[in-house]
């Protein structure tokens, strides 16, 4: 298992054009990032394409990894998640919108195996804070992060006007932040 220092060192060397370090970084982190792509996209071929895009970005932007003060693994996860969500949103746009496949989505993640696994993980803190939110609000935050739902998607799902949706999600985010900062 690669340590934070390993990943940081590989990223620093990638920034200097060290391809061996890039290979090590890939072998240590690609399974995690591929898992995220598969989870978001639920399509193997697309997940493979996006994983390639992700590592191209990682190589090209390695020098910037700590610009925003993220830990190296969070930086990688964030690139992966954003790339996968971008692809998912493009697919939805091409398919004529999100509403058509809404029925296939897990509408209540609070009961799903994912939520249970989160609760069992070392990040129980996050799960505990999600528990403090109304289950609908928690599902909205998770839906935005892992399913790329937009305010329009969420407003449609919860059947409220978009501005109402936004106001209430922002209040939930503050509640969540307050809990996570305790």
């Amino acid at each position: 298992m690669a340590t934070r220092d390993d990943i940081e060192n590989w990223l620093a060397k990638c920034a200097l054009g060290d391809r061996d370090a890039f290979a090590r970084l890939y072998s240590a982190t690609s399974s995690k990032l591929f898992g995220i792509c598969l989870r978001v996209l639920d399509d193997r071929a697309e997940a493979e394409e996006v994983l390639q895009e992700i590592y191209v970005k990682v190589w090209r932007n390695a020098a910037r990894y700590n610009a925003n003060g993220l830990s190296p693994m969070t930086w990688l996860i964030t690139i992966a998640r954003n790339a996968a969500i971008d692809r998912l949103r493009r697919r939805r746009a091409a398919e004529g919108g999100y509403a058509d496949d809404a029925g296939e989505l897990q509408l209540d993640p609070a009961k799903g195996p994912e939520a249970q696994a989160i609760a069992a993980s070392e990040h129980a803190r996050l799960a505990a804070c999600f528990d403090e939110l109304d289950s609908g609000h928690a599902a909205a935050v998770k839906g935005a992060y892992l399913d790329g739902e937009t305010y329009a998607d969420l407003a449609a799902r919860f059947d409220v006007p978009l501005n109402t949706m936004r106001t209430w999600l922002r209040r939930s985010l503050l509640k969540l932040r307050e809990c996570l900062s305790r």
């Binding site: 399974s31 995690k32 693994m73 996860i77 964030t78 998640r81 993980s121 990040h123 992060y145």
Partner: peptide
């Protein structure tokens, strides 16, 4: 990012 902890590699 911790939301991805439960996702299997």
């Amino acid at each position: 990012a911790a939301l991805t902890d439960a996702i299997d590699p």
